[in-house]
Amino acid sequence: MKIAVCVSHVPDTAAKISIGSDGKSIDPNGVTFVLNPYDEFAIEEALKIKDAQGGEVVAISVGTDANKETLRKALAMGVDSAVLLKEDKDRDSIGIAKALAEEIKAQEAKLVFFGKQSVDFDNSITGQVTAELLDYNCVTVVVGLQIDGEKVTAEREIEGGREIVETSLPLVITAQKGLNEPRYASLKGIMQAKKKTIEEKTPAPYENMIELVAMKRPPAKQPGKILGEDSSAVPELVKLLREEAKVI
């Protein structure tokens, strides 16, 4: 079976974010970009299935040449091939999904993994939209997955518990932490990844439907009061919670 994994290239979660001079994007100076953390779970799940049932895994990313670094990481973890859908402008999520859907169709992948969300814009859109464009079934925020022929049972995280979902292939899964333990790239994997070529393609042009008007800092929170250094401060804390914050 051919399995596709869609990966995004995002600022490291520990990065300090400052706003660029255009007032619409971040200042990339000093920001390290990495493979989106949730996509590591997506890659691991694809590789696990390949290890168990055989098949081939392709990683796909939409973006600039910089995304090749993330595709190399996927190759180093063990995916068989990588495709960069080259786009130098920022696309909205629907545009990214359109490019991905086109490529997934060409690859004839019937099982596709995404992360549950890309930690740059925190959208949680791309997997679901790609699934609908392909007319595939789709389960999001998945923490458990069992595939038995065409039949699939997935566990997804919801408020206050987990849903057990029954569905079938062809299928899109968006991965949540807890689905598996992503493997580290082995030295051999890293060496081999360096030798592999990343195929480049140009996706069909797309006009954004979402227009970013401005990026701004969140309103600064007033630094709070330290009320004391031991339990003698508790009565004041309770008083403030009651009278000032009115929460108890």
């Binding site: 979660t13 971040i26 979402i210 008007v213 969140p218």
Partner: peptide, 20 residues
């Protein structure tokens, strides 16, 4: 209609317009 939403885990906000 301008919608405001958090990005980068709340480290920044964006204002967006939906053009469809």
């Amino acid at each position: 209609i301008i919608a405001t939403r958090p990005v980068y885990a709340g480290k920044a906000l964006i204002d967006v317009k939906v053009n469809s």
